[in-house]
Amino acid sequence: MEDSAIIELFFARSEEAIKETASKYGRMLKSVALRILRNMEDAEEAVSDTYMKTWNSIPPTRPNVFSAFLTKITRNISLDMLDKEHAEKRGAGEIPALLDELEECIADNRIPVPGEGMELREILNAFLEGEKPEARKIFVRRYFFGSEVKEIAQVYGLGESKVKMTLARSRERLKKCLEEEGVTV
């Protein structure tokens, strides 16, 4: 079923919307959650919560890109779940490593950002727009999807050291980008 048709089902408050969403994107969303949570039960819970949140969001929201809309919700829910004690006990997958790496971008761990979150979003989008495609995709796979360095290296047929180097340079550019846009480190 086309995404637009599924969205219409949500607007019509038909429960078929969730069924169709699960059928079309369930496995992909579970994969996104698994990368972050590294636990099947938690991942399933995150995906179920994604359907619920989507149900509550549409209407009024009408997503432009349904797959990205769902992916973002699953990612956020998965990160929320990591805050729960039981998830932390089971291990937080790649997230601690991601946080350590991202800390390089904010140096003293306190970045005053002018304006609200939307501005930071724009800075991040501008940074990604300026990245070369390979570096951008590696960055998004690592810091949005939470993929391991090893996995990214396999995906693009690169060595792990090359991926790490690419990420380090991207982080350095992001740091500069944040500073140039008025973010004081």
Binding site: S67, A68, F69, K72, L120, R121, F144
Partner: peptide
């Protein structure tokens, strides 16, 4: 942004086209 967690969260709101 006061910590790395917020930066990680903010990355979750990047443009759909990158996802």
């Amino acid at each position: 942004i006061t910590d790395k967690n917020k930066l990680l969260r903010a990355i979750g709101d990047i443009d759909d086209k990158y996802i």
